[in-house]
């Protein structure tokens, strides 16, 4: 068994061109055992192309992808042995029942997984005897989730996994992701739903225009995110005093209303304002979406006029 935290997937200098279009360039990414990495970015940022290169569906123009010490281009069959992959649009075989389709996929891996398939289907409330062609989009997505998890992958690559799933099934999916992480798998979760990534990921890589613009731990991002405080005080403080408090990025005073944007601990702010008689405090924490918007220079919903 691989040590928790050991690198399972190592991407170095990955680039992909489609003609003149540079879809992905110079991507460095490491997926570690026992870690969920969120890959976030707007549509067209290059997330699916990057995942496609990880599973050898897309051939890199530059750079390397190594999974469990096997290069996916030169030794794809070995590299993909422990990989579970859920594409952004899962289709399946319309003429097959879910059971037959999943059994066929298991045979492709030279495995017999009847019991595991049954257990996963039960968790996701999936009727295995229904033909895939008769399924709704969400039910088909459940088949996609089962095929990605059924062989207990050590590297799990999920591209927009919750598309079409109802909230209860989403909860099951997150539990399954947590279980794989706890079992030592390296998980990559691509999404443009920031709250999903915030809930599930330990590390985050943000993509924009084919580049990774930020890669850090969720803990560090949380620490760095800014807090916006709106306070009502009995007597207004002096603005330079507020701006002198460590971590304050922006401060304004309008009558008895004080607004402060800051990072880090807020204790000194309250120490300074206490003598001015604090009547009320409203606190807004920036989420991952705000961090991403800040990096990409796009306004968040809150900042839009």
């Amino acid at each position: 068994m691989t040590d928790r935290g050991a690198a399972r997937v190592v991407v170095r200098g990955l680039g992909k061109d489609f003609g003149d279009l540079r879809a992905v360039h110079d991507v460095d990414l490491t997926l570690r055992s026992g870690t969920v990495t969120g890959l976030v970015g707007p549509n067209g940022a290059g997330k699916s192309t990057t995942i496609g290169a990880l599973v050898a569906l897309v051939r890199p123009t530059r750079g390397t992808v190594v999974i469990d010490s096997h290069d996916v281009v030169r030794d794809g069959a070995r590299a993909l042995a422990g990989v579970g992959y859920l594409p952004s649009v899962f289709v399946g075989r319309a003429a097959s029942t879910a059971r037959r389709y999943l059994d066929d996929l298991a045979r492709l891996r030279r495995l017999s997984l009847t019991t595991t398939i049954g257990t996963l289907a039960e968790r996701l409330r999936l009727d295995l005897d229904q033909p895939i062609g008769h399924m709704s989009h969400g039910t088909r997505q459940k088949v996609g989730v089962v095929q990605a998890f059924m062989h207990e992958p050590t590297v799990l690559l999920l591209d927009e996994p919750t598309t079409g799933l109802d909230p209860l099934v989403q909860d099951q999916l997150w539990q399954m992701v947590d279980e794989r992480r706890d079992a030592g798998a390296a998980v990559l979760l691509s999404s443009h739903v920031m709250s999903e990534v915030q809930r599930a990921a330990d590390d985050v890589a943000m993509m924009s225009d084919g580049l990774i613009v930020l890669a850090d731990s969720m803990l560090e991002l949380t620490r760095r995110r800014s807090t916006r405080l709106e306070l009502r005080v009995l007597s207004p403080p002096l603005l330079p005093v507020l701006r002198g408090i460590p971590g304050v990025r922006h401060a304004s005073v309008s009558g008895h209303q004080v607004e402060v944007d800051m990072t880090g601990p807020t204790s000194e702010l309250f120490t300074v304002l206490a003598p001015h008689g604090i009547e009320s405090v409203t606190c807004h924490d920036d989420d991952l979406a705000a961090v991403f918007a800040d990096l990409c220079g796009t306004p968040t919903e809150r900042e839009k006029p």
Binding site: L57, A77, L80, A81, P87, F90, V91, R93
Partner: peptide
């Protein structure tokens, strides 16, 4: 073209 092939290519076989 339909997308049905993707999961069948991400298996340990050439």
């Amino acid at each position: 073209e339909s997308g049905a092939l993707l999961p069948e290519l991400v298996v340990p076989r050439p």
